[in-house]
Amino acid sequence: MENAFTINQLNLKYGEKKALDQITMDIPKNQITALIGPSGCGKSTLLRTLNRMNDLIDNVRIDGDIRYEEQDIFAKEYDVINLRTKVGMVFQKPNPFPMSIFDNIAYGPRCQGIKDRKVLQEIVERSLINAALYDEVKDRLKESAKELSGGQQQRLCIARAIAMEPDVILMDEPTSALDPIATAKIEDLILELKKKYTIVIVTHNMQQAARISDNTAFLLMGELIEYDKTDIIFSNPKETKTEEYITGRFG
């Protein structure tokens, strides 16, 4: 099986505070990998390291390496913009730009210099269809994205991410701000997307991890405690800490 990411001995510090400690793991292609753990365990940090969004924070020090498609993403000559076009991201809170639905999705391609209205139209439609949102919004593409419901906004953000034709989509607790019905829709969508994309998802919701992911990694205090097939983690974890967490004894 091919890997999308190979993470090796990754350490990350915010100033003096250690956030990730000696993480080593592989993230396989075209599968869903879930990162779970209590708040502050470093799972979001790990996710954001994968497309180098942590660059935006001051005082971050990273050592160890992450290879994406065999290339070291921390290498000096490595093009971070290129990385981010390949590795898309969906955030915890739906965050559409204050523009129309169309402009939101066309934003990424436009930044890459696509100006042809027809091409853009096609990209927007395809992305919306792939994000299972097209039928709901096809008549109001010119309206503000802010007027959509929370679940729709999140699917719009997913559509915006897949408009870039990424290989990987990182999802940072994408359903934590949504109601159960909207959550179910997003989960269906994620399972659908798995066919084309590698997905890494951070989630607080263990049922969600169990339902949708192929692999699950359990992090605690910046350390990777256990990483295995999802059914193994949830049915027969090797570590007691994992078991305690999964059975709800702490966290």
Binding site: M53, M89, F91, F97, C111, A161, L170
Partner: peptide
Amino acid sequence: IPDEYRQASLALGATKSQ
């Protein structure tokens, strides 16, 4: 302006000036 806008845009591969 919430930081989420900046992050969302950068995550889409836009440069800082874009």
